[in-house]
Simulated scan of single mutants.
Amino acid sequence: MPGAHVTRDEIENLIARAALGERAAFGDLYAHTSAKLFGICLRVLNDGAEAEEALQEAFVKIWRNADRYRANGLSPMTWLITVARNTAIDRARKRREAQPGLDAAEAMADAAPGPEAQAIASSEAARLDGCLAELDGSHAEAVRRAYLEGETYAELATHFDVPLNTMRTWLRRSLLKLKECLTR
Rank of each mutant, 00 (worst) to 15 (best):
A71P: 00
A105I: 11
E57A: 13
P163W: 03
D47K: 15
R68L: 08
K61D: 12
A133V: 10
L74T: 07
L128Y: 14
D110L: 13
G39W: 05
Q118P: 01
A104Y: 11
R172I: 12
L171H: 08
A112W: 15
E50A: 10
E106G: 06
A140Q: 11
K94R: 15
A133D: 12
R144P: 02
P100G: 01
R17T: 10
A19W: 03
N86E: 09
I81N: 03
T166V: 10
I40V: 10
A133F: 12
A140K: 07
D67G: 14
A146I: 07
G27T: 06
D136F: 09
R68Q: 01
Y153W: 12
P163R: 05
T169D: 07
P115I: 11
F160G: 02
C181W: 06
C41S: 10
N65C: 03
E106V: 08
L42F: 15
I62R: 00
E52H: 15
G101H: 11
A49Y: 14
L164H: 15
I89V: 15
Y30A: 02
W79Q: 01
T169P: 00
P115N: 08
L14A: 01
R145G: 04
N72W: 10
H159Y: 15
A117G: 09
Y30E: 03
E22R: 15
L132K: 12
A31S: 12
Q56W: 12
E149H: 12
L102K: 10
A111K: 11
R85Y: 12
W170N: 00
E116R: 06
D47F: 07
I81S: 02
H32P: 02
W170I: 04
A16F: 07
D136P: 04
L178F: 02
L20E: 14
R68I: 03
K36L: 14
D67N: 09
E149V: 13
I81C: 07
A4E: 14
N72F: 15
L45I: 08
I62C: 01
T152E: 04
H159A: 08
N65K: 10
R93L: 13
S122W: 11
A25T: 01
V162A: 04
R168D: 05
V162L: 03
T158R: 09
A119W: 06
G39Y: 04
R172M: 08
R91E: 13
W170R: 05
W63C: 02
K36G: 03
P2W: 12
I81H: 05
A24C: 06
A119S: 05
G3S: 06
N165M: 11
A121R: 15
L74M: 08
P115E: 09
A92Q: 09
